[in-house]
Nucleic acid binder design. Structure first.
Lengths: 153, 153
DNA sequence: AATAAATCCGACATAAATACTCGGAATTAG
DNA sequence: CTAATTCCGAGTATTTATGTCGGATTTATT
């Protein structure tokens, strides 16, 4: 029941990207350096984010990445789903029409799973990347001069 | 980001136990049979639930398990935590005094993790075993005569 | 044109967690 | 005494998580 490093690193990387790219693209090396993430691993995560249409890449020397849309239009849910797949704690499908679970009609735990899943969605879909970026700027201002070491989570 | 079979099977088993034990204890074999769970695996889960003080066991022939307290006093959160450990999607500790994460003061994703964790807690701690049992009885009544096959989740 | 800096891609490797299984000891009702 | 149980620790196979690596491709710069 844990979020993997993909989701954790990836979200941090995306906040970093939003924070550090104006016009120019930001390369993996610099993000990985600031965020203390392995370059080759981060590369994989960026691939996932690009495939999901959240960032766009610029190839070749001087290349890197940029957000594909404004940070206001990217939710934490978008990011985590791109990296982790769907965020359902239990994929029971009892409330879907497509692939409903066998015996869903005699199942009571389905109510539990739905409440958990809804709780998670509510949390991740209500936070936009822009809010994190904004908060991050505030923090950076107040820590000016301090070496900003990074959270390991 | 998935709940393991421990949590899923274990909760079902506990609902089954609450539903099928009046005065007498219920043995693993019968729960496992109804719920279509391996006996030896379920045994392990029952051990965890017992260690957590949610059920009590009666050893020897004719023995089995009973709830250690009324179903009204057992939350889904109690059950899942007994089986899965803490349910935090990210154990960042940024808001604890004990073992706060390094660099928590420059971290912004901590707000995200907290919202997710709170969402999950809110969901699991607000549902009592008794509610599931009650709902289950209603369902059983309406399906009387039907073979109650069981949800695989 | 050559070089260096990047992304892109697939495959591989290792470690950890998950999901069981098993054998036997201890307990107790009949 | 026997059979039905729980109790316990250890073992195993599979899957998932967490990276690593080598090389192809693209592009800015010199």
């Amino acid at each position: 029941m844990k979020l993997s490093t993909k989701g954790r690193y990836g979200l941090r990387a995306l906040v970093d990207l939003a924070l550090n790219s104006r016009e120019e693209a930001v390369c993996i090396q610099s993000i990985a350096g600031r965020q203390n993430i392995s370059e080759s691993y981060l590369e994989q995560l960026m691939r996932l984010l690009r495939k999901a249409g959240l960032i766009k890449s610029v190839r070749g020397a001087g290349g890197g990445y940029q957000l594909a849309k404004p940070a206001e239009a990217i939710s934490v849910g978008d990011v985590l789903r791109a990296l982790e797949g769907n965020l359902e704690a239990v994929e029971c499908g009892a409330f879907q029409k497509e692939h409903p679970c066998e015996g869903a009609d005699v199942c009571v735990t389905k109510y539990v799973w739905k409440r958990i899943n809804d709780g998670i969605c509510q949390a991740v879909d209500s936070i936009m990347l822009a809010e994190l970026v904004e908060e991050s700027r505030r923090i950076q201002d107040s820590h000016r001069g301090t070496i900003a070491n990074v959270c390991s989570k």
